[in-house]
Design a protein around this nucleic acid. Structure first.
Lengths: 402, 402
DNA sequence: CGAATTTAGTTTGCCGGATGAATTTATCCC
DNA sequence: GGGATAAATTCATCCGGCAAACTAAATTCG
């Protein structure tokens, strides 16, 4: 009998999945709520019977994913509602990051509280990958061990890297600014026992930073995120979800070509070549080793070369982002990293190019805003990505917790 | 009581939806299958109990969405399977299109057979919108009436236009090559009684053409589609689904800027300005009224200006598509319309630019292929889009059929 | 102050629908 | 003609959401 291979059975509905799915709906409802909701409010907002929600909430409380707060003293008639909130310090998502001049770990719980954080600043360009990853593991291992010993269940780890990571098969393909190429990141990190139990999901730094940004904005926003570090990365966020692409290689905004005839190679006209940190410093007449602060200082003084450098970068950025908007129909642009710091100096030009070049701008104006996810957003995003596995299917995750 | 507004209750699972959902799963399983499947094969591939599938299939047969074929005479022991196939001539999706030099209608049934088709060739640039739409309605009304009188249920209509349509609020914003702007397309078309019952879903021509292309390729392909008509449109297809964007304004590949400093305005360096049909004819030294055939003739003769014109267009196309690939991580490019006809002349250059500029090309080479959805793909895509509403939730659709 | 009112949460019986085992149907093979 | 084999149907079971009744805990009103 030629049995066809199973297609996508995830879409078939069965009663066993029904409860699991609704458990996730309720948990996400509690975690995503702006303020604590009661069982009755959850039932109303999710359109489930109160009895159903009660049963699911009991399950979540028993699993220490949700906690009951003290009844709120409303001045209303009737039995007071028991507010529900995500549990604190019971589950941790761990985000790690290696970037060009720092590396670090951050652990968050379901409530969004930081349970642990360690960052080391250092110039890592050209440093051997295995050495750097060992150093990162040395930072992360005590965190995992400490959390575990305190009874905090680790939901998973994620590792942000400034490069191209294959989310399907794993290895880091290339990280130009670190000088890494074809590194078996998961293999190296998993050699450390505490991390072997939680092999990291490796992802692009900009994608994870964009996830933190989406979380900070709540309410399922859609935007194009630009992460100006040494290189220029980016990500597309749609309804609060990172748009991953087939391999997790989406959002490589830095490689958009806006001036195909500038140099001998078309890539000489890429956004990164025109607006990357190196290009800006060079045009501003600053040494390649200068930091962004130097450029900012020159700008405040009104140094003409610095002003021109940033103006050129802003123009390139605006043109590139207009192409992104035309292709994926996003209405908001968020500038992070370097461009977040330069926001006041680039906003007008970026906005003007978008208004000029995006075909739908007359009917749906685009907004440009600075990132608000705080420092090291990719670490936060990595922690959130780890926690997202719990939120996506809490029943499944709980079963897997032996 | 501050009841929160209902969020997205579509994700909660309830038993009432379970059957509806599985009805859709089974119907799509039958329609999408490469060859007719039996109830038992469906049960295996969808991971449902045979009893469940049987009940659902009976329902679908009664609703005339599925038909039983004669048992196949396999040389196997056991009761022979009853192959199931989409019903023919019982439900029709209608696709309409107005483009720069033609307009027409096409009706398809669930089996993909063409039930009716009418196309009129004419130069419609600058012609009054209402007049053209009335003419289209005059083409479509007899088709709808004829189908209805034959007992074919019309699932809906869709209208493809070479411009920017707001899929949320309806009106055509702008169709540069037709010279239309802010036209209440649905209102005009719905003034005709037969169409008032089936107000069209208006969409961009390239998006609907890409849908037809995805259907022609089966198996949920992912690709960037380029529709070279007089302008250059495009669409992103992911896992067989059109990527719509917030407003249905995605895929405007023609507005990607690849040479920001070419003219006084950055838009002078857009793909459409460099590789649109007008630009190619001008560079080739042909009159603006010439048709594509003239360019093809000049190419086969080896006329140097024609060759140069196409080479320049191909280079621009390759650079623009590289940006698309870098941003949305698609691995395949499909060239339709003009570029489909010019495929042999542009393939090498487009491919070379992609290999050069797409950052992931070394690990995941990109392919470039010509469209294979046949003539007037947007009409086919519109018909498929109309039928998709039935496939998405057959139970709901059947209930709505009074 | 006590009864009525109001809202939150729980208990209970019901019901729809998926399920798997048993049964029937239809063919092939010896 | 009698197994063997596979497809399709029948049927009892079970799971989980649901509505309604019920309990709990507050405010409001007489």
């Amino acid at each position: 009998m030629p049995t066809p291979e199973p297609r996508d059975p995830s879409r078939v509905a069965r009663q066993a999945q029904m409860r699991d799915q609704n458990l996730g709906v309720v948990l996400r409802g509690i975690v995503d709520a702006d303020e604590p909701l009661s069982r009755a409010q959850l039932a109303a907002s999710e359109d489930l019977a109160r009895a159903t929600v009660s049963g699911l909430v009991d399950h979540l409380i028993e699993a220490r994913l949700v906690r009951e707060l003290d009844p709120a003293q409303t001045q209303r008639a009737g039995r007071p509602a028991v507010p529900l909130a995500p549990a604190r310090g019971t589950v941790a998502g761990i985000g790690m990051e290696v970037n060009v001049d720092y590396l670090g770990v951050r652990a968050l719980d379901l409530a969004g509280d930081v349970l642990a954080e360690h960052v080391e600043l250092d110039d890592l360009r050209g440093v051997d990958a295995a050495q750097v990853l060992d150093r990162l593991a040395a930072l992360a291992e005590p965190v995992i061990e400490d959390l575990s010993s305190r009874g905090v269940r680790v939901a998973g780890t994620a590792l942000a890297l400034p490069g191209l990571v294959d989310r399907v098969t794993g290895p880091l393909r290339i990280a130009p600014n670190l000088g890494w190429r074809d590194v078996d990141v998961v293999g190296v990190v998993s050699a450390h026992p505490a991390l072997a139990a939680f092999p990291p999901r490796v992802a692009n730094e900009a994608n994870l930073a964009a996830r933190a940004e989406a979380h900070a904005r709540r309410g399922s926003p859609s935007f194009a995120y630009v992460s100006g570090e040494v290189g220029i990365g980016g990500a597309i966020v749609l309804d609060g979800e990172i748009f991953p692409g087939r391999h997790g290689w989406s959002g490589e905004i830095g490689h958009i070509v806006i001036d195909a005839f500038r140099g001998p190679r078309a890539s000489d006209g890429s956004l990164e070549a025109l607006a990357g940190q190196d290009a800006m410093l060079r045009t501003a007449g600053l040494p390649p080793t200068a930091r962004l602060d130097a450029l900012l200082d020159a700008l405040t003084v009104g140094e003409p070369r610095a002003t021109a450098a940033v103006a050129q970068a802003a123009r390139a950025l605006g043109v590139a982002l207009a192409s992104v908007a035309n292709v994926v129909d996003v209405g908001e642009v968020v500038l992070g990293g370097t461009f977040g710091q330069l926001f006041d100096h680039v906003h007008d030009e970026v906005s003007a190019r978008l208004d000029e070049l995006v075909i739908f701008a007359p009917w749906s104006p685009l907004t440009v805003s600075p990132a608000r996810a705080g420092q090291y957003p990719a670490m936060t995003g990595g922690a959130l990505a780890s926690l997202a596995r719990v939120l996506a299917d809490p029943a499944e995750w709980l079963r897997a917790q032996t």
